[in-house]
Design a protein around this nucleic acid. Sequence first.
DNA 1: AATGAATGAGCGTTCATTCAT
DNA 2: GATGAATGAACGCTCATTCAT
Lengths: 220, 220, 220, 220
Amino acid sequence: MNTHSLRIFHRRPTIVTKAKSNDKYERILEAAIKVFAEQGFHQATISQIAREAGVADGTIYLYFKNKDDIMVRFFDQRTKRAFSRFRVAVDRVGNARDKLTVLIRTHLEEFQLNRDMAVVYQAETHRNNRSCEQQIRDMSKMYLDIVSEIVEQGQQEGLMRKDLYLGLVKRFIIGAVDEVINTWLHSNTDYDLSSMAEPLVDLFLRGVGNPEEDEGDKDA
Amino acid sequence: MNTHSLRIFHRRPTIVTKAKSNDKYERILEAAIKVFAEQGFHQATISQIAREAGVADGTIYLYFKNKDDIMVRFFDQRTKRAFSRFRVAVDRVGNARDKLTVLIRTHLEEFQLNRDMAVVYQAETHRNNRSCEQQIRDMSKMYLDIVSEIVEQGQQEGLMRKDLYLGLVKRFIIGAVDEVINTWLHSNTDYDLSSMAEPLVDLFLRGVGNPEEDEGDKDA
Amino acid sequence: MNTHSLRIFHRRPTIVTKAKSNDKYERILEAAIKVFAEQGFHQATISQIAREAGVADGTIYLYFKNKDDIMVRFFDQRTKRAFSRFRVAVDRVGNARDKLTVLIRTHLEEFQLNRDMAVVYQAETHRNNRSCEQQIRDMSKMYLDIVSEIVEQGQQEGLMRKDLYLGLVKRFIIGAVDEVINTWLHSNTDYDLSSMAEPLVDLFLRGVGNPEEDEGDKDA
Amino acid sequence: MNTHSLRIFHRRPTIVTKAKSNDKYERILEAAIKVFAEQGFHQATISQIAREAGVADGTIYLYFKNKDDIMVRFFDQRTKRAFSRFRVAVDRVGNARDKLTVLIRTHLEEFQLNRDMAVVYQAETHRNNRSCEQQIRDMSKMYLDIVSEIVEQGQQEGLMRKDLYLGLVKRFIIGAVDEVINTWLHSNTDYDLSSMAEPLVDLFLRGVGNPEEDEGDKDA
DNA sequence: AATGAATGAGCGTTCATTCAT
DNA sequence: GATGAATGAACGCTCATTCAT
């Protein structure tokens, strides 16, 4: 799959399946993510990325159309790869609660493991970015679809309320997870991010409200 | 207050209370926010901002130290102004549930009313931004302090559970609100954002879980 | 004389003889020399000069055509004034040796007393400066004329050799004096410059050669 | 040696020994000196230099850190090269008089041959120039050391008087030479500069005084 | 006369991209 | 394929000069 998408960038349409070239492609992408994370997309220069990857500036243009394209490929491959792992992880467990827990734990683990990816992801998904717009939309959809499925299953299993506005629930969940990651990224202490999964799920399911309390005021 | 902070940008500190000069400062800031929202900070050029504000390029430097400084002032004044309105609104109502509802509704209203501000705010708070770091931290704290107070009051009033990890609850709430705003910003349809306040509060308090359900599995 | 030359700069040809305006003109010129000395002509800004003079930027243009013109007036008035003092001083003494000594001592004294003027003078006379070219030429001529007279008188008096190439002698003298001033300007210690007058005159008259020595080799 | 100093300007330190790159560095430096001579350092623009050198504006920054750096390299290489030639020339002859004559003739020849260098040198050594200060000081010292040696040797050989204040003698000599060059630079006629060497040495050694004259008045 | 806010031309510098080797 | 020197468009910023008040 990489090979396929790689091919279209070579000026001369040569099939490049050799491990060596693939390596260089990956090295550049890896380097780019690191530099983007450190400097931000605009501050990052092709020269920095090339130096980090151990290649010449010009070499980058053999594997990527231009600077924007590096970002596009990052979403196309790295984050998409991460998100498909969520799918796999969720499919491995049965009930809705476990699925939700696994989704969030995998999400946190994946982002904790790839801090640079996390930084870039957070920055790029929160600004108007013409070139990656579709990629981000696609990925967002992947994630939201999983959440939808879980919620629907949860409702069938009786775990979750029926009177939910699904669209809002999705944002409610992803937003909280994002913010937990964002806080972790901007914090100076390096606490364990994935341990937040269970407490978060608890909050999602039970809210902060006291169930003993008469909730009548809500409907009043 | 604006007049005060304006003064420091004049080469020689002259008291400028005339509406005219103040106007120009505000016009430039307004224009900058608009251009930042459309193009992103780095893509935006001083020329674009000047054109949008109807002034010469050089004029901007009579009111702002440099491009970064425009962003700093944006946070220092516009977003801080918005956030202090949250405080006022929250203080006007009595119980914790009302306070939470009012906080979130005001937040959504304010951002809905100032779409450009919202876009810039979202973008800048999610990237490593050396020059505004302190501003963002300050503002984040203002918001989180309000949430903390509400949660603590809610616990005393018996509205909220006692077994809450406050730090996480704050992120849980602000994250969801942020995501709701973010989705609104990136959506093409212009639905009413502030109407999301009550449903969100409901989710915060009750979660998505079904209270009928035996929650024993949670502790298992 | 100042009043006369001042007048031509006023846009509306009003006779300005009031001490007040004259003051302002002088204050600006004084300020400019100070700033030019500290920063160099190009690094100096009109704003700096205005601040130093305690006037508004625009006011400078009521008294000077433009930035270059300040330099022109500096030469026209300040250095010319200094050089005319040399003339007066020289005329006060009788024989060539005394005249030479007095010329050089006055020169050193004048420049020691007006360090800023000295700095600006040194810088501007050693670069191609289109706008002041004529001024510099005129002043150089004034100085060289005095030297010429002294040398000619010295030859008549038998103090000086007859076989001198006058053009070279002038450069020989002015060059050495200039260099002594230049070294003083660039040195960090603030030694007494005018005390160099007599030793210099001694060098000019006797050279560094040993008169005991058979000078035959020179003609060989 | 040039190659060595050249290297440090390349982003990644690559050994550039090819004549081509060296050429470009030299071409830019040459062009810069020409433009500096014509316009002065501040009036000169990078674009003019680039055009004169036949390269793009950006290319200059592959070889020089910034505009100031061009000036620094000019002193570091061109004038230092010239001054080291003085040393070589002086060392080739034996007695003090010959050494002095050779020093001054070489000096005049070198500056006559490199008029642009001479113009830039005169301008920059007579203004406060932060970036080149050390270079100028170093070079000045080189020159003054040679003069010192010659004078000391001259004293031992009996050519020169013993009662000399060496510090002043150095300024006396270098000042006169400088002024001769300066006059040549500003004159419109292109007379032979180096022919001034012998007459100057004669003035240095014998002064303008008439040795027949009773010098008693000097001490009186 | 005096002011100083406003102007906008102009410059140094950066950096994504190209292309000859 | 790989290189990296070369390019030149583009941008942030400065500052001499103007002019309405």
